[in-house]
Computed example of a mutant assay.
Amino acid sequence: MQTLPTVLITGASSGIGATYAERFARRGHDLVLVARDKARLEALAARLRAECKVAVDVLPADLTKSDDLSVIESRLRDDARIGILINNAGKAQAGAFADQTAEEIESLITLNTTAPTRLAAAVAPRLAQSGSGAIVNIGSVVGFAPEFGMSIYGASKAFVLFLSQGLNVELAPKGVYVQAVLPAATRTEIWERAGVDVNTLPEVMEVEELVDAALVGFDRRELVTIPPLHVAERWDALDGARQGLMSDLRQAHAAERYRSQA
C-alpha cells in the first residue's frame, strides 16, 4: 500500500488553512500544522486525530519572525515524509497606501511574499530530487486588480502568482506540481484582522466551498485555479494576451513611437 505524503499547511489555525487540514486529513494524509495560535492548532489537531485517525504535528510559529521561519524551513528540508506544502499564511492590508507604517508594510510583505518563497525554496530541492510532490500557493484575484486600491496586498498576491508560474516552469519537468489558487472575497478572519466587517461585502464565498473547489483544481493538476471565475476562457485569453505581448517585444531597438518627441 502506497504511503500518502504528509502535508504541511501554514496559517492552519483557522479559515482556509484549517479547512485544507480537514480535507487532507479526510483523505488520509498526516499533517504538520503551522500558525501562531498554539491553542487553536492543538484543538484542531486533537479533533483531526480523533476523527480521521491521522498523525498531526503542531508547529507554532510566527512567519514574520526569521527564527520561527527558519524552524519551518528546517522541517521542510529534513522531513522526507512531507510531500505537499500549502503556503496559505497571509494578511490583508488595512487602509490606503499612504496610511501604512513602515512596520505594517514590512510585516505584510514578509508574510505574504518572503515566507512562502523561503518555504518553497526549502522544500523544492528535496521534491525535485524525489521527482514528486506539490507546492500550493494561495494568492488572490486582487493581484489582477490595482483598481481595488489595496496596493501592497495586491502586489504581494501578484508576486505569488508569478512565483507559482515561474516555479512551474522550473519544477514541473522534475515531477513537482505547483498550483496557484486565487480566491476572491472568502469568509475568513482575515477581514476582521484588517478592520473590515465581512458582512458588509456584497458577495462572499464560504471557505469550505473555496477549498473544495481548489482541491478539484489540485486533483486535475491545474496550474492556476480561480474558484470564483465562472468563465474559464477569460483566464485563457489573459494568459494568451500575455504570451502575445512577449512575442511582440524586440529587444535591440525602441519601438517606433518612442523615437521622436512628436
Rank of each mutant, 00 (worst) to 15 (best):
Q2G: 06
Q2V: 11
P5I: 08
T10K: 04
T10E: 04
A12Y: 12
S13L: 01
S13D: 01
S13F: 01
S14N: 13
S14V: 03
G17Y: 02
Y20C: 07
R23F: 13
H29E: 08
D30S: 12
L31Y: 05
V32M: 10
L33A: 01
D37M: 00
R40N: 05
R40S: 03
L44A: 05
L48C: 07
R49W: 12
A50K: 14
A50L: 09
K53H: 13
K53R: 14
V54Q: 03
V54D: 02
V54W: 04
V56Q: 06
D57I: 07
L59N: 05
T64R: 15
K65H: 13
V71M: 13
I72M: 03
A80M: 12
A80S: 14
G90M: 12
A92Q: 11
Q93D: 09
Q93C: 14
A94N: 15
A96H: 07
D99A: 15
T101A: 11
E104L: 12
I105A: 14
E106F: 06
S107R: 15
L108E: 05
T113E: 11
T114Q: 05
P116H: 05
L119V: 05
A120D: 03
A122K: 13
V123A: 11
V123F: 12
R126V: 11
L127I: 11
A128G: 10
A134E: 12
A134V: 10
I135W: 02
I135K: 03
I138R: 02
G143W: 14
A145Q: 13
A145G: 08
E147P: 06
L161R: 10
F162V: 11
F162L: 11
Q165D: 06
L167D: 02
L167H: 01
N168Q: 09
L171N: 05
G175Q: 02
Y177W: 01
Y177A: 00
V178L: 03
Q179W: 02
A180Y: 07
T186H: 00
R187L: 00
T188H: 07
E189L: 09
W191C: 06
E192L: 15
A194Q: 11
P202H: 02
V207S: 03
V207D: 03
E209K: 07
V211H: 01
D212A: 15
V216N: 03
D219A: 10
R221Q: 15
R221P: 01
A232H: 10
W235G: 02
A237E: 11
A237F: 07
D239M: 11
D239S: 10
D239Y: 08
A241K: 08
A241G: 06
G244D: 04
G244L: 08
L245D: 09
S247F: 06
D248Y: 07
D248W: 04
R250M: 13
A252H: 07
H253M: 10
R257S: 00
Y258L: 15
R259G: 02
S260R: 14
